[in-house]
């Protein structure tokens, strides 16, 4: 009950924010909502299942290029192109899961990093279609769904909010089901969980596919809403971002990924206006976090004030 109120309350606040915020912040928040969807996807694997991937940009990129290439070269409309993006991310996640889940711990981190690097190089290699680093723009005229112009800032904001809300509610529900409880059990003690009769390997596989698909949904939406597809989004920094956002907001909490993405976005936005050394300020904040709030913002809130927090 409380958790439903929390999630619906957050969505209600965001609906209202879309009407009240000035254009600049509305634009920022639209971007944050898409990136927070990416964080939510990352959190399924890292926060709930306890598997640290250093290669999630490949799933974000699979969604982005799946949709982008289908629209740009294939002439697909946004909705089928979005479905293609999701299918690419899900398929890639399934392949990566089959291979990478043979390893654990640091080896898993390295294997995911290598896969993502391969994906990045693949994008550059097929430069004829992907236009490599330079990327390509999705024409404004094609970014329409059922008469709604996704290039209109307000429409774009609400489209991003629909995506974010769906991801939030799906994961929140999932974590109430037994499936979600078993993911947490795998995170807490995999061997114990196996010896209680759970197929932990299958649960990790599904967690990675769900996580990769949500990340791909975010990548596809990013391309569709902001009209640009480029290799940067599959580079290693886009694998590190969701890790930072989730750590900052609170790994293994439902709204932590959003809080972390919001916080980091505005931290960089504010500090880059003040100084060129904004990355140093980001670094300082992360050091403070690891010293004083190891569980992340929502993780600390849960530990100190609200143990019921999902």
């Amino acid at each position: 009950m409380r958790s439903a109120a929390l999630h619906l309350g957050l969505i209600a606040v965001l609906v209202a924010a879309g009407l009240m915020l000035p254009a600049y912040h509305q634009g920022n928040l639209a971007r944050i909502l898409v990136l927070a969807t990416y964080s939510i996807g990352y959190n399924v694997l890292f926060g709930y299942t306890g598997l640290l991937s250093l290669g999630h940009a490949m799933f974000f990129g699979a969604g982005m290029y799946g949709l982008g290439l289908a629209m740009h070269h294939g002439g697909f409309a946004p909705v089928p192109a979005f479905v293609i993006g999701l299918a690419c991310a899900a398929g890639l996640a399934a392949i990566v899961a089959l291979l990478a889940l043979r390893t654990i711990g640091v080896a898993f981190m390295i294997v995911t990093l290598m896969f993502a690097q391969t994906a990045f190089l693949t994008v550059l290699y097929f430069g004829e279609w992907t236009r490599g680093d330079e990327g390509f723009v999705l024409q404004q005229a094609t970014r329409q769904i059922a008469g709604l112009d996704l290039t209109n800032p307000t429409v774009r904001y609400y489209a991003a909010l629909v995506l974010f809300s769906a991801a939030l509610l799906i994961t929140a529900r999932m974590m109430q089901l037994r499936f979600g409880h078993v993911l947490i059990a795998v995170r807490e003690n995999e061997e114990r969980t196996r010896m209680l009769g759970y197929d932990t390997q299958r649960h990790k596989f599904l967690a990675l596919v769900i996580s990769g698909t949500l990340s791909g949904a975010a990548g596809a939406a990013y391309a569709l809403l902001f009209g640009y597809v480029g290799a940067t989004f599959t580079s290693v920094q886009y694998s590190i971002f969701p890790l930072l956002w989730v750590l900052l907001g609170g790994a293994g909490t439902t709204i932590g990924p959003f809080i972390g993405t919001l916080f980091m976005f505005y931290l960089i936005d504010t500090t880059s206006g003040l100084t060129n050394a904004y990355l140093m300020i980001v670094g300082v904040v992360l050091v403070l976090l690891t010293l004083f709030a190891r569980a992340g913002i929502m993780g600390e809130v849960r530990e100190r004030f609200a143990p019921w927090l999902p």
């Binding site: 947490i184 059990a185 807490e188 003690n189 061997e191 114990r192 010896m195």
Partner: peptide, 12 residues
């Protein structure tokens, strides 16, 4: 099966 070295979920 119960473990010789206690294996409960400490944080649950």
């Amino acid at each position: 099966y119960t473990f010789q070295i206690t294996a409960v979920y400490a944080r649950l």
